[in-house]
Each structure stands twice: as structure tokens, then as C-alpha cells.
Simulated assay, not measured.
Amino acid sequence: MPNTTTNNDPICPLCDRPIPDGSRSLHHLIPKLKGGKGGPTVLLHQICHKEVHATLTEAELARNFNTVPALRTHPRLEKFLCWVRKRPPGFRSKVPGKRRGR
């Protein structure tokens, strides 16, 4: 059964699309391993969250990309966000992602 969205679905702060049930993932803006265990979090699409962690190391996230506006400025994430915004809210990649070279 395909994911459906409702007006009550939260909006992903990265791609600005509604996040249906089953596609939600909590992202620590400062990684837990870098002192962010009790810190701020944001609710993202699972696919957006995976792309963040495939793109950036924990150290890079803690040091330079610990806000949503900062994440949006990363060149690879900018390109990904332009691409994913054209997909339906419940879209999931059928190909497993991996960490790409930096």
C-alpha cells in the first residue's frame, strides 16, 4: 500500500515536503557521539536523513553543519534536495545508498 500524506503530516525542514508515517527519522543536529545526546533534533524524511549521513562525517556535522540552514548549503546536499523535491512525499530509494567519497 503506498504512503499517503495528510494535512497533519510534519514538513521536512530540508526538502520542505510533508513526511508521511513510516518515512520519518529523527536527526540530532550535533551527533550524539560528539556531545549532542541531549541536544536539538529535527524530524526529517528517512531518505533525507540517510543522505546527510552518507555525505558528512560526524565531525563535519558537529563542527560545520549543525543547523538546517548549514546543511542546505552543502553542495552535494543542495543537489540532492533539488532532486528529491520532485519526488512524492513517501518516496524511498530502491537502491541502498552508501557513503560517497569526499
Results as ranks from 00 to 15, higher is better:
Pro20Asn: 08
Thr67Tyr: 13
Ser23Arg: 09
Ser93Thr: 15
Gly97Asp: 13
Lys98Asp: 13
Gln46Lys: 10
Pro40Thr: 11
Lys86Ser: 13
Thr73Asn: 10
Asp16Thr: 11
Thr67Gly: 14
Val95Asp: 11
Cys15Thr: 07
Lys94Asp: 11
His28Asn: 15
His27Thr: 04
Gly90Ala: 12
Gly90Gln: 00
Thr41Trp: 09
Arg63Ala: 08
Pro69Thr: 09
Leu14Glu: 00
Ser93Phe: 08
Asn8Ser: 08
Arg72Glu: 01
Gly35Glu: 05
Thr57Phe: 11
Gly35Gln: 05
Arg85Ser: 09
Arg102Met: 04
Leu26Val: 10
Gly22Pro: 15
Lys98Thr: 14
Ser25Trp: 04
His45Phe: 03
Lys86Val: 06
Pro18Ala: 06
Arg85Met: 06
Pro69Val: 08
Arg102Asp: 07
His74Phe: 04
Gly36Ile: 00
Arg76His: 05
His49Val: 07
Glu51Ala: 09
Val52Pro: 15
Pro31Tyr: 00
Gly22Thr: 09
Phe80Gly: 05
Asn7Tyr: 06
Trp83Gln: 10
Arg99Cys: 12
Leu44His: 06
Cys48Ser: 06
Ser93Trp: 06
Thr67Asp: 14
Lys94His: 12
Pro88Gly: 01
Arg17Cys: 03
Arg72Cys: 08
Arg92Gln: 14
Leu61Thr: 01
Ile47Val: 10
Arg92His: 10
Pro18Arg: 01
Cys82Glu: 13
Val68Trp: 01
Phe91Cys: 09
Gln46Ser: 10
Arg102Ala: 07
Leu71Ser: 00
Pro89Glu: 01
Ala70Ile: 00
His53Tyr: 15
Arg100Gly: 13
Cys48Gly: 06
Pro13Tyr: 02
Ser23Tyr: 04
Pro13Val: 07
Gly36Ser: 12
Val52Ile: 14
Pro10Leu: 02
His49Cys: 07
Thr4Ala: 05
Glu60Arg: 14
Gly97Val: 13
Pro31Leu: 03
Val52Asp: 00
Leu77Arg: 02
His28Trp: 09
Ala54Gly: 14
Cys48Tyr: 02
Pro31Asn: 07
Asn64Thr: 14
Val84Lys: 12
Lys86Asn: 11
Trp83His: 12
Trp83Arg: 12
Arg102Phe: 04
Ile47Glu: 11
His27Ser: 05
Val84Trp: 03
Leu14Met: 12
Asp16Ser: 12
Gly101Val: 06
Pro13Lys: 03
Leu81Thr: 00
Thr55Met: 05
Arg87Gln: 13
Cys48Asn: 11
Thr6His: 06
Pro75Leu: 03
Asn7Glu: 10
Pro88Gln: 09
Asn7Gly: 09
Val52Glu: 01
Phe65Ala: 05
Ala62His: 13
Pro13Arg: 00
Thr57Ser: 15
Leu56Gly: 02
Pro69His: 09
Ser23Met: 07
Glu51Gln: 14
Lys32Gly: 11
Thr6Leu: 03
Arg72Thr: 06
Gly38Lys: 15
Ala59Asn: 13
